[in-house]
Design a protein around this nucleic acid. Structure first.
Length: 739
DNA sequence: TTCGAATGTCATATT
DNA sequence: GAAATATGACATTCG
């Protein structure tokens, strides 16, 4: 048994593993996935060996010495024997196998486009899919704030890791994926089969061979653990094809996009139907007037398919807009999370085709037709004086001018002001864009350290130095910091300083380090944790004065062979600041930390304990002054940075607020137009039913309805109504000016 | 060699 | 007024 194990372990099995892993990985995976746990155990080792934590060990086992021989038994031996022959046979086809894999790379995306959507295409679609998501979306929301878009993109990466996480990222993130295993073998394979690979460019080999293999294998085997998880991608596959509509989007997809829109439009149509019912109940005789008015109001730009279709149901405009988004939502279940509700609801481009029709090309005429007072008609039941007459004519220059509730004037006037100013949602979005683009501040938060730099507490790691120093300085006030970090003046860490002092019997340093706060920002190990701060590790200790260097640069006594400690001490010595060198040269009997960080009372007390020369005292005072100033400068810079970051955040918040307000404004305008249209209909209906004493209808050019303060509606001569409306307008102007 | 970032230092103002 | 702190300006180092 043992001999068999040994035989397997050291001979056949390893050879089998090597061969199988060199060129026939997919086939090995096939075996693995075909429910052959023993073989899986033999070749790949226990599943635990493929966990991420073990992966580097796995990487080290490429030579075949870490294959978990404990998992081998006799059963596996025979299985392995059988497989060995197969593997050897397969090995001859390793190159074609690789080519097949390369073919998979190019095929899968097509499959995803075609709608059959093999799960493999998802990962392959990653980058293009990302663009596809934003592409059509941009097509609909082309005036979306770029900030929102960037956020969306970030979100997309978060939402759909399989999409955004491409191969290279996987390699980077995991340090080594399972591909490494294969890659290494492929290196060997290159050695063995160079001729067969000479025809390929290296890049192609990397992509077609490694990349596609990895991708294709990702479909079945986790790149890291080697575990099969076919169920994961189908899940994404179900959502992604919708979330990632490609350019060559099939009509079916577009239909799926439109269908929710149409469905969503049903509700508005129902409303409209109700309204029509109401009209019919009132037996409106001049229905065509209303209809024509509505069409006029909602007629969109020619050629606009959306607006054209929507113009038939003006009152549904808002809901149609919503429906449009719902449609895109339904079809983009994943990327929908990209858009925050507020951003998403803003319909720069999506709504532009829809909203533009809402904005009457002749807004002034609309205002002329519907003065703010017209709205009042919406808020009281059609309780009219009941003087019935003939139908009113279609021309109602300012029919509701007198129906205004003064309380609404101011509020509505704002809306009307917007209309009068020619405001429309498209302009709003345009404004938004301009605002976004000319903010002058780069709000790129993707790599902005703002995310790392929180408030004072979290402190901007962006200014790593500043951050550490801030905490250091803040703690210094209490002089009870537990930090064991670099002193304010020196660059060496406490432990390093201690080593140095121990090694060289430093000039009377008293290591009460824990008492003092120290700055850690020069700690390379910490810097290494902050990739964007890797460059922050300068030793800006200025050139030492020759006198100081004399003492500092003395070679080790006796010229003994330096140990690691001494080398470290030498290195640290070079890292010492100028003031530290000076202090050593002047034989200052305490550390610069103490000099700098002690409260003035303790500092004076410390000075009194020693007999110090004037030069020493002067140096100590300078060290203290410079050290404190250094910390102050660091704090100052940190505050500056924090201020900038806070300003950036504030600007971003303001941008969001502005976008939200613009959206609300657009919504309000839409609602206003809807209400005005309804009021117009009501007005016409009521006016049309009025009859004079002879049973004839009143002429709309001569009479108008006016809403009185007591809630009643009066029929007054139009001239009088216009006069009153003019008077109100004059009244309103000073108010607006005051505002 | 030049440039920009990070940092140290000084002078001065402020607390 | 001293000490601490803040800050602008400049110098230095480093990649």
């Amino acid at each position: 048994m043992l001999s068999l194990k040994k035989y397997l372990t050291e001979g056949l099995l390893q050879f089998t593993i090597l061969l199988s892993l060199i060129g026939v990985r997919v086939d090995v995976d096939t075996y693995l996935t075909s429910q052959l746990p023993p073989l899986r155990e033999i070749i790949l080792g226990p599943s635990s060996a493929y966990t991420q934590t073990q992966f580097h060990n796995l990487r080290n086992t490429l030579d075949g010495y870490g294959i978990h021989p404990k998992s081998i038994d006799l059963d596996n031996y025979f299985t392995a024997r059988r497989l060995l022959s197969q593997v050897r046979a397969l090995d001859r086809f390793q190159v074609p196998t690789t080519e097949v894999n390369a073919w998979l790379v190019h095929r899968d995306p097509e499959g995803s486009v075609s709608g059959s959507q093999p799960s493999s295409g998802l990962a392959l679609e990653s980058s293009s899919g990302l663009q596809d998501v934003t592409g059509p979306d941009n097509g609909v929301r082309e005036s979306e704030p770029e900030q929102g878009l960037s956020e969306d993109l970030e979100d997309l990466g978060a939402v759909a890791p399989p999409v955004s996480g491409d191969l290279t990222k996987e390699d980077i993130d995991l340090g080594a994926g399972r591909e490494v295993f294969d890659y290494s073998h492929r290196q060997k394979e290159q050695d063995v089969d160079k001729e067969s690979r000479d025809g390929r460019g290296e890049q192609e080999d990397t992509w077609a061979g490694e990349g596609s293999d990895a991708l294709a294998r990702d479909l079945l085997v986790d790149g890291e653990t080697g575990e099969c998880f076919p169920a994961q991608f189908p899940v994404d596959a179900a959502s992604l094809p919708e979330a990632v509509p490609s350019e060559g989007e099939p009509p079916a997809l577009q239909n799926s996009l439109l269908s929710p829109l149409l469905t969503g439009a049903e509700s508005p149509f129902d409303l409209e139907q109700q309204w029509q019912d109401l009209m019919s109940i009132m037996e409106m005789q001049a229905m065509e007037v209303n209809t024509s008015g509505g069409e006029t109001l909602y007629s969109g730009p020619p050629g606009d398919a959306l607006s054209t279709s929507y113009s038939l149901a003006p009152s549904t405009a808002i809901n149609q807009n919503v429906s449009l988004h719902q449609a895109s939502l339904g079809s983009c279940s994943q990327d929908f999370s990209l858009f925050s509700p507020e951003v998403e609801s803003l319909p720069p481009a999506a709504s532009s085709p829809v909203l533009l029709p809402l904005v009457p090309s002749n807004s002034t005429s609309l205002n002329a037709t519907f003065s703010p007072g017209g709205l009042a008609g919406l808020f009281f039941p059609p309780q009219l004086n009941g003087t019935a007459n003939d139908t009113a004519g279609p021309e109602l220059p300012d029919p509701l001018g007198g129906l205004l509730d003064e309380a609404m004037l101011d509020e509505i006037s704002l809306m009307d002001l917007a209309i009068e100013e020619g405001f429309n949602p498209a302009q709003a979005s345009r404004l938004e864009e301009e605002f976004d683009s000319d903010s002058g501040l780069s709000l790129d938060s993707s790599h902005s350290p703002s995310s790392l730099s929180g408030s004072e507490g979290s402190s901007s790691s962006a200014s790593s130095a500043s951050s550490a120093s801030s905490s250091a300085s803040s703690a210094s006030s209490s002089t009870s910091s537990s930090f064991s970090e670099e002193g304010a003046v020196g660059y060496s860490s406490d432990s390093e300083t201690l080593d140095l002092e121990e090694a060289e019997g430093a000039v009377g340093y008293q290591p009460e380090y824990s008492k003092f706060c120290r700055m850690s920002y020069q700690d390379p190990s910490q810097l290494s944790c902050l990739p964007y701060l890797e460059h922050v590790g300068h030793n800006h200790t200025y050139n030492l004065a020759p006198s100081a260097l004399d003492a500092a640069d003395l070679p080790p006594a006796g010229g003994l062979k330096r140990g690691g400690k001494e080398k470290q001490a030498d290195f640290l010595e070079k890292q010492m600041s100028r003031d530290e060198h000076r202090a050593r040269a002047m034989k200052i009997p305490f550390t610069n930390d103490k000099i700098i960080n002690l409260p003035v009372e303790e500092f004076n007390e410390l000075l009194s304990k020693y007999q110090l020369s004037e030069a020493q005292l002067g140096l100590i005072r300078d060290i203290r002054r410079r050290g404190k100033n250094k910390m102050a400068a660091q704090n100052c810079r940190r505050r500056k940075l924090d201020t900038i970051l806070n300003l950036e955040r504030a600007v971003e918040d303001l941008r969001r607020d502005k976008a939200r307000l613009l959206r609300e404004k657009a919504d309000s305008l839409r609602s206003l137009r809807q209400m005005k249209q309804k009021v117009q209909s009501l007005y016409q209906e009521v006016f049309g039913r009025l009859r004079d004493e002879n049973g004839r209808p009143y002429s709309p050019s001569q009479y108008a309805l006016q809403y009185a303060g007591d809630g009643s509606v009066l029929l007054i001569p139009r001239a009088m109504a216009e006069q009153q409306a003019h008077a109100r307008r004059q009244e309103r102007k000073p108010k607006e000016r005051r505002k």
